[in-house]
Amino acid sequence: MTNPTFEDVAVAPPRGAIPTVRSPVDRSAPSGLVGLLAAATWLAAAGTIRYWPDVPEVSWDRTEEFALLLAAGASTIAVLTIAAQWLAPLRRVRSAAPWLVVIGLIFAVWEVATAKTAVLPMPFFPPPQAIFEVLIDDHKRLLDCVLASGKLLAGGYVIGATLGFVAGVAIGWSVKAGYWIHPILRFIGPLPATAWLPLAFFVFPTSLSASTFLIALATGFPVTVLTWSGVAGVNSTYYDVGRTLGASSRFLVFKVAIPAAMPYVFVGLFMGLGNSFAVLVVAEMLGVKSGLGWYLQWSQGWAAYANMYTALFIMALVCSGLITLLFRVRDSLLSWQKGLVKW
């Protein structure tokens, strides 16, 4: 079996996003002019949305509000950019400025291509204000879906990560545990968790418990493998040092092996999180009658494409937020380490 090594994992771009490496001192920070340019593009997008008439066939309820929102965004960017001349903590807005320019342009181009000229055919490609409309008008259902997905994900992830961690430490530490767990892991682990889906949905009493099981499985495998390689790779002189200083095997496991393996464990937790997203969405599309995956499927069924894009947008926000959270936890726990993978 080819277990992913730490180096493989550490340099592989995380699922769904490219890691950005932020240099501590950003000498190439753009000047305030770029910030003002960003404000201008946002204002231009707002003007386009507000004053360019929509194609006659369709109309949207919240065009006006969305234009106002972009205009408010434009003035916020402008104010922050100008204030940053004097307030050092606001300088961060400068490094975001080029991106803000691009975002303003995207809004303008998107708007023109959809609502204003219908170059992109209509029901399939809604304009930005349609997404905004869904966010406002359907926020209750969306919030319910986020909570439902969150609950399911949290349950499965915590169970999978805990069991994976314990199994990984056991295999890495004890020859006997390795003898029994390793072949199972080797045989079942590479199977994608979604392959269990049909079985899980009739073995488990509820679709919720079935999905929890699948998410736990998807999380557990990478966590087990990486915890195990972390524990197995601990410098053996660390144990020699501990033993000469009077450490019991309990101490060697909890105070030496586990802390030394933590960088690997976090790589496993990170990979497990990516896997768990995939399984969550599939499970929600196929069996569970709630959550963002279900919302995606449901809105597609009603040809409510704006709702579908909105769900995708929220999903990206949530997944990226969770990964960021995981990396924050890691950074604070592993502050002793140099050269961490950045997010």
Partner: peptide, 8 residues
């Protein structure tokens, strides 16, 4: 090697 525990 000093073999200090790097996390301590």
């Amino acid at each position: 090697d000093p073999t200090l525990y790097p996390w301590r």
